[in-house]
Design a protein around this nucleic acid. Structure first.
Length: 934
RNA sequence: GCCCGGAUGGUGGAAUUGGUAGACACGCAGGACUUAAAAUCCUGUGGCCAUUGCGGCCGUGCGGGUUCAAUUCCCGCUCCGGGUACCA
């Protein structure tokens, strides 16, 4: 590194100085101030991993920091906090391997994260820091869980209600007239309810509570020794670690997220998130409107209830299919088919989730020997069992329409079932289905072979069938959701303990004054010999009365579901957040984070918030008003080319002359794709005596975009950049790299450009001797135009999160001021304010040198004055047939006709018109002139 | 398979409502300053043709279309990235 002369821009010294100043003066501490409008800017808080921050993490933090500072300069009281999602699997895995307490490693990692963040100059109010593993914080996670246990969802009121009201209802009317979200449909009278034991009653109530215990099929990950939520599983493997996941039946805590499906869906209409993110959530929630229809089973009392979105195709049904797990399987199977069915069930049970995923195309199934009766056509149709029907969706049973559903089609072909066509696409004739290789689309077309529906269009037929079915009492219109309840138990140590104890095997909640229930110490972070979770190892893990405490812990998303509320009032000992603080800060105005949380955190926290909203604890139904996704920073790897069988390395453009091997090199010893040969020799003893075949005395490396990871040697640390170029350069460069939302590789090739820019800024103020050289002369119209153009552009760009173009506009401005040799205070002082959100350190320094005694954070955003941009003349591009040919300077304010006349009379136009006729002239005043000839 | 994004010079990218394609920056080439280097500054830089000046033609993944005018709108395709996957 070169040594900076004193008078030059010395970023190391400046940044240290101002970071200390901000701490000493509590510059970023924020309190409730009713005289100012609030603005809440939030980053998704990080999980503090052992690897520290790499250069990709701060991308969103820098963007949100710029926005926060910008809002503050515009007079807002800005809440901009940060904390840590401190519970998680990696710390626990590390603890299992090393025996070190996860609290210790987590604390170390947090310290490292903090140190790295501090070097970048963020404007976080650290006095509001939240760590999810602090008892002071997780007390409120436990509290919220108790509230969920104590409430159920009323489908009529469309909100959460106290469970006491449900009990009251049961005592008066039983289940009659009650409309609550539930796991299983129950029917009992008030008399029956009163006749039950407490244990039985408690079991029944679990069917309704928002937090409940139930036997369910869970995603069990043997390698991690725990269950996982749906969003933690990708393609049959755990998202963290990539271990296989299988289905297993277990008694677990769940959150009744599905009760809020409709509200979670509708809420999306009211918030400003990207369309793609909303689309992901819509799909995940998966609303579908259809009909529930009843098919009687022949020679039996049993009725099969099915769900379909295409009731109109009911005349095309040739068989029924039950999910293997369906309760009806036992009821309908005929004695002479018992063995085949039992064999099939055994066989499907053995197939893991992974195999089912991998063999989607493999069709399996078994006939039950029973027949159902089509309620419309009265035709008898066979009932089959197949694992392509899911127990968890709809009713676990379907009516199969093979001609118009590809899965039903494949099944019918495999088992030789009839395939009658019932919908004919527009402009086509009925076809011979035996010639088809797949089902045909039936979203549009005309009904055939469908009794009273014949000749109707698909939408007409759907309506008519629904009506018919409702009138005849065969079924009802029904809405189904794909969204599942969230499994909330983890068989792990490093998470929030449940505030739960057991009496006669039934769960009960601790009292509010018994919280927090602290995470106990254990001798090992492993399951017990009996296979119980690690907390079962804790000594005295029971209540004072001796009741055993829950041994599962909460999942990762528990702690992140309400942290944004805690930041509003982080030290409150009485409540999660006071109503005063909540009324003032309300909700998050801007949330920045990665799109990977689309189906996890961003669903759970919306759910959690809605529950608290229903309980009157928070004032907003939706927690995150606007959300911006930052793109991922990918790695950019560098390669050297070793000549095979030698210790010789050949530069990129000469490598084709040799037989070479591509080897990853650490990108930190490559600059602009040029290898630092000395660093390379020192990197690894193997390369100590390496020889090089150079181009023009330089060694050029090849490159590729890959994941940022240690093994590719392409991890870049923000601290390295800060040391070399300064935090202000890092901030500007990360923004300059491209649009915030776009994923892009980290590439330092352009960083010199932004660093050079900051030095140019410095020199506008400071002369070669290192003294302030500033003039109080009145600014020229030209200088004012440059400034005001930049004020407008910067504000517009920041408002629409186009930070890369904002940086460009600063560069243009500084280049222009350089050309004008401008060193006037009237111009340079406001310019500093514009730049302050992007480069807070250097602007503070120059601001102070200009004689200001207050931090630039509290300056005022300059007022834009359009008058300075008024032009007396306009340089018109003149096009012929749409092609720009020359430019014509005309006075501003001419009429269309005058502009047209001037353009046609111009000497240069004659050449382009020559020999042709002017057919038309288009004039857009202030923009363009287009002359059509031919 | 389905849904959503994207594709612009050697590179990152700009063009906000259909109106001058390539702003800004990197890299590269040449020059100034210097004993030399670094730093700094100046000039050029989409491709092809012409180069004596002017200039001309092509060009925003590919093929069509709408329009006076298309990177921008419409139709059909290719490739890349993300989400999701038996959801009836």
């Amino acid at each position: 590194m070169t040594i900076q002369p004193v008078m030059e821009y010395n970023f190391n010294e400046i940044e240290k100085k101002w970071q200390q100043y901000w701490i000493d003066n509590k510059t970023y501490k924020v309190t409730i101030d009713p005289d100012k409008p609030k603005f809440y800017v939030l980053d998704m808080f990080p999980y503090p991993s052992g690897a520290g921050l790499h250069v990709g993490h701060p991308l969103g933090y820098i963007a949100s920091d710029i926005y926060s500072r910008y809002k503050r300069l515009n007079g807002f009281n800005v809440l901009h906090p940060m904390g840590y999602d401190a519970y998680g699997l990696p710390a626990e895995q590390y603890a299992i391997q090393t025996g070190q307490h996860p609290a210790v490693t987590t604390e170390n990692n947090i310290a490292r994260y903090r140190e790295q963040m501090d070097k970048i100059g963020f404007s976080y109010d650290w006095s509001r820091e939240v760590k999810t593993c602090d008892a002071d914080y997780y007390q409120w996670t436990q509290w919220a869980f108790i509230k969920m246990f104590e409430h159920y969802y009323d489908d009529d009121a469309k909100k959460a209600m106290p469970i006491a009201m449900l009990i009251e209802h049961f005592e008066k009317n039983g289940t009659d007239g009650m409309n609550a979200a539930q796991t299983e449909k129950l029917n009992f009278s008030a008399h029956e309810w009163k006749g039950k034991t407490e244990k039985e009653q408690q079991e029944i109530l679990l069917n309704y509570r928002l937090a409940y215990l139930a036997d369910t099929m869970v995603n069990w990950c043997p390698a991690l020794g725990t269950v996982l939520a749906n969003d933690e599983v990708k393609d049959g493997f755990s998202e963290r670690g990539g271990h296989p996941v299988e289905q297993k039946r277990m008694r677990q805590w769940l959150l009744r997220v599905s009760a809020y499906a409709e509200r979670l869906l509708n809420g999306l209409e009211t918030i400003d998130w990207s369309d793609s993110l909303k689309e992901i959530q819509r799909y995940w929630i998966g609303r579908s409107e259809g009909a529930e229809m009843v098919f009687p089973v022949k020679d039996s009392e049993v009725e099969m209830k099915i769900f379909t979105t295409r009731a109109d195709t009911v005349f095309g049904v040739t068989f029924m299919v039950l999910a293997p797990e369906s309760e009806l399987v036992q009821q309908v199977t005929r004695p002479n088919h018992q063995k085949e069915v039992a064999d099939y069930l055994e066989q499907t049970k053995k197939r893991t989730e992974r195999e089912r995923q991998a063999e989607v195309k493999k069709v399996t199934g078994v006939f039950t020997g029973a027949y159902a009766i089509n309620p419309l056509s009265k035709v008898e149709i066979p009932i089959w069992i197949s694992d392509y029907v899911l127990a968890g969706y709809g009713t676990g049973a379907i009516m199969a329409v093979p001609a118009h559903d590809s899965r039903d089609f494949a099944f019918a072909r495999t088992f030789n079932l009839p395939i009658p066509q019932v919908v004919v696409p527009k402009g086509e004739e009925p076809a011979d289905t035996s010639a088809w290789s797949d089902s045909i689309d039936s979203k549009e077309g005309t009904m055939i072979n469908s009794g009273f529906l014949d000749g109707l269009s698909v939408p007409e037929a759907i309506e008519k069938t629904k009506k018919h079915v409702a009138e005849k009492g065969i079924g009802q219109v029904k809405v189904n959701f794909r969204l599942r309840d969230a499994i909330f138990s983890r068989q792990r140590y490093w998470g929030e303990p449940f505030p739960v104890f057991y009496k006669e095997g039934m769960p009960y909640m601790l009292k509010a004054d018994e919280l927090p229930l602290q995470l106990p110490e254990v001798d090992k972070y492993l399951p017990t010999e009996k296979g119980e979770p690690p907390l079962a190892r804790a000594k005295g893990w029971q209540t004072q009365e001796g009741y055993p405490l829950e041994v599962n812990t909460m999942p990762g998303f528990a702690g992140s579901s309400a942290y944004y509320l805690r930041y509003m009032d982080p030290q409150n000992k009485q409540e999660l957040v006071s109503s005063e603080a909540n009324q003032y800060w309300q909700d998050v105005d801007l949330y920045i984070g990665g799109t990977e949380h689309a189906t996890g955190h961003l669903v759970y926290s919306r759910f959690w918030n809605k529950v608290l909203f229903d309980l009157g604890k928070v004032c907003k139904d939706e927690p995150f008003k606007k959300l911006v996704n930052q793109g991922m920073i990918q790695g950019r790897s560098n390669f050297v080319y070793r000549v095979k069988g030698s210790n010789q390395f050949v530069s990129l453009n000469l490598k084709d002359q040799y037989e070479t091997m591509e080897i990853h090199v650490d990108v930190n010893m490559v600059h602009n794709d040029q290898l630092d040969i000395e660093a390379f020799r020192a990197w690894n003893p193997e390369y100590k005596d390496a020889e090089f075949i150079l181009e023009d005395g330089k060694y050029f490396c090849g490159w590729a975009v890959e994941k940022m990871s240690k093994s590719m040697f392409n991890v870049v640390n923000p601290d390295t950049i800060v040391e070399q170029y300064g935090a202000d350069t890092l901030r500007l460069y990360e923004m300059f790299l491209g649009p915030l939302e776009q994923s892009k590789p980290w590439d330092t090739n352009g960083i010199d450009g932004v660093h050079k820019f900051l030095r140019k800024v410095w020199r506008l103020f400071i002369n070669k001797e290192g003294h302030l050289s500033i003039s109080d002369e009145k600014a020229s119209p030209e200088e004012l135009k440059v400034l005001h153009r930049t004020i407008k552009k910067t504000a517009d760009d920041v408002e629409r999160f186009s930070f890369n173009t904002a940086v460009s506009s600063f560069m243009i401005c500084v280049n222009d001021l350089n050309d004008l040799k401008c060193n006037k205070r009237e111009i340079l002082e406001p310019l500093l304010v514009l730049l302050a959100p992007f480069a807070p350190h250097v602007t503070e320094e120059l601001w102070q040198r200009l004689g200001n005694t207050q931090s630039i954070c509290d300056a005022q955003w300059p007022v834009f004055n359009a008058e300075h941009l008024v032009e007396s003349s306009i340089l018109y591009p003149v096009s012929f047939n749409g092609k720009m040919r020359f430019k014509l300077e005309l006075p501003a304010g001419l009429s269309k006709a005058e502009i047209e006349k001037a353009a046609l009379q111009n000497e240069q136009s004659l050449k382009w018109i020559e020999g042709q006729q002017v057919k038309k002239v288009i004039v857009v005043p202030g923009k363009i002139i287009n002359i059509v000839v031919g």
